[in-house]
Each structure stands twice: as C-alpha cells, then as structure tokens.
C-alpha cells in the first residue's frame, strides 16, 4: 500500500475542501484499502468521511425511505423498518460479504466499490478498464463474468445493494462543491462500459452521495432478493435477483426485476417484466418470463452455466412471490 496523507473530515464542506484529484474519500475503507493493497489505487491523500455526523439515518417520510450513505450493511440488515417493506434491501445487505465486513462496509461505499474481475484487480494485467487495450476476460477465465453487455469489458457489477435498490427504483442525492445537490436515478447513475470504459458510474470529482431515497412500495407489493453462491457460507454471488412485484390475487400487476452478477450494471430484466405483467403467475408463465429474460444473453466460453442458473432462480423467485401473496 502506498503511503498517504490523512485527514479526518468533520463536515461535508471540510471533506470537499480537502479533496484533490489525487485524493480519495474513505467511508468503511474496505474497497479502498483492497485496491490500494493491490496497487490498483494509490491516492496521495485519504479524506475520511466515516466520522461525518448525521449520515446514518433510516427514516421514512412522505412515501420515501431515506437511507444515509454511512449506514453499515449490518445496520441495514438488522433494521425493522427496512425489512417491513423493502425486504429485498435488507436481505441484500444481510447476505453480502462476511459479518465482519458487514460491520465495516457502508452503503455509499458498497454502491461505489470497483468491480471484482480478477484481471482488473491484478496489477499485472493492463486491461481495458485500466486504460489498456485488452479485456482479458474475453478469452480468459471468465466463469464469473457477465452474460449481458459483455463485449467491451465483461465485469459484473459487484454491489448487492445496487441490485436491490435498482429494483426498488431508488434515487441518489449527490452533493458537489458549494453544496450543489442533484438527484439521479440509481439505474441511470450506474453506467455501462460503452458509456465510460474506465468507470462504473457518473459520479463527478469531489461529489459525495449524501442520501439514498427509495420510494415506498404499495402495501401489497412483494420485495424479494435471492443470492446464489458457490458455497453456503459467505461468498460472492454467481447469480442474484432482486424483484418488486405487485399482485392482484394470483395475477401480476407490475414487476421490477433485476439480475445481479449478470452484467456490468445491475441488469434490468425488462423482457421478463413485460412477459409476466398482467399474467396469472404459475409455473408456465414464470418459466416463460425467465426464458424471455435470458433470450438476449451473450455468454462467454466459461459462464454459460449462468443461463440455466438464472432461468431457474428467476422462475423460483416469481413463484415464491406468488406464494407470499
């Protein structure tokens, strides 16, 4: 890890005044330290935002759940309000990483963490994402890589919370210098390699995530998150699904379905959403929707198994949503 200057910010203004192009904000520090230890990041100054006050709120107000960016994944997993109507978000947090990491990792940092692609994380591979010419995953070890939008760079978006929050239509409040604030849909904030090869989102230099805003779903909505790893104890997902479904009896009235560990951004399964909306949810319609979701996939040499995996998980999750109705 390179050596650096350290500054502990007491306010947003102070944090932003300490920021330079060669600096990095630190929240929980889990991803930042990892990147520094691998020599992928080498900031000259670390601006600690972990001790900013008032950014660990959980508050429902006027049809919107406000989540502070400094909430830890453990706090999100344990919160009764979140679990009551946004259980996909609580479950995404509860199933991410290890108990220790969940105690350290923050929501803001989880959304902005860099991809886990082993070529990206290895300094010996000057891959496209790091400004090189080649995406090594195309011809290489790509069993954990993307099955959608994988032609330029085949990373999967690493954030479980992003998967659940996109399904819930969450927005971010971003605060720039001089307290300029903007609000952006998380789904639009997270960008594909075709938009910017070197980044996974459109955060501006010095900007901070200051609020995560999630609409309150209808009282009859089902909010579900499931994760499939290779082993039962902690693991990164090889597939994850978040969905918010509203039902009228056994008929699906509306569906928001997102696949994680599938694409360079949380992948909105619009084909499945269209296929299931207005239908009675049963094995046949759920299976057809799941097939539709995977029809546009472009698997690489070693990740074709993900198609069958996602199809089964998606069918099962739709039936589970109906079961809970």
């Amino acid at each position: 890890m390179n050596n650096f200057e350290w500054a502990d910010a007491k306010s947003i203004d102070e944090a932003q005044s300490l920021m330079t192009d060669a600096s990095a904000y630190k929240a929980g520090g889990v991803d930042l330290l990892d990147l520094m230890k691998e020599h992928i990041a080498a900031p000259k100054r670390i601006v600690n935002i972990r001790n900013l006050q008032g950014f660990d709120q959980i508050k429902e107000d006027g049809g919107v759940l406000h989540l502070g960016p400094l909430l830890t994944l453990a706090q999100i997993a344990d919160d009764k309000t979140i679990r009551s109507k946004w259980s996909a978000i609580a479950d995404a947090a509860a199933n991410a990483a290890t108990p220790q990491i969940r105690n350290m990792a923050t929501l803001g940092g989880n959304l902005l963490q860099r991809p886990r692609c082993w070529y990206f994380r290895n300094e010996l591979f000057p891959c496209r994402k790091k400004g090189g010419e080649i995406c090594y995953a195309q011809q290489g070890e790509n069993q954990y890589h993307a099955i959608f939008n994988n032609q330029l760079c085949a990373i999967v978006h690493p954030s479980a919370l992003a998967c659940a929050l996109v399904a819930h239509g969450a927005k971010l409040e971003l605060s720039g210098a001089k307290n300029q604030k903007r609000e952006v849909l998380l789904e639009e904030f997270l960008t594909l390699p075709s938009v910017d090869l070197h980044r996974e989102n459109s955060i501006q230099s010095g900007e901070l995530i200051t609020d995560i805003r999630v609409p309150t779903p209808r009282a009859d909505a089902k909010s579900i998150y499931i994760k499939q790893g290779e082993k039962e104890s902690f693991d990164w997902p090889i597939a994850e699904i978040a969905m918010v479904l509203t039902m009228d009896g056994e008929t699906c009235k509306s569906a928001s379905i997102v696949l994680g560990a599938a694409a360079p951004v949380p992948h909105r399964a619009t084909e499945a959403e269209q296929a299931i909306t207005g239908k009675k949810v049963d094995e046949q319609s759920a299976g057809a929707a799941a097939k539709a979701a995977l029809a546009t996939a472009t698997p690489l040499a070693l990740n074709g198994y993900k198609l069958a995996l996602f199809e089964n998980l998606l069918t099962r999750t739709l039936l589970q949503a109906k079961g809970n109705a």
Binding site: G29, V30, L33, D34, K37, T98, Q100, N103, M104
Partner: peptide, 23 residues
C-alpha cells in the same frame, strides 16, 4: 490481509471487524 478470512478479527466498540482492513 484482504478482509476475506477473518483471522484478524478484533472488536471495535464491541463489534467484530477485520483489523487488516482497518487503519
């Protein structure tokens, strides 16, 4: 030394964390 094995677990303010990923 990457937060992935928890061998370095200590408690900070009563909460178990990875001391290898804490400055």
């Amino acid at each position: 030394d990457r937060g992935a094995c928890s061998a370095c677990t200590v408690w900070i303010d009563g909460t178990p964390v990875n001391s290898c990923m804490t400055l």
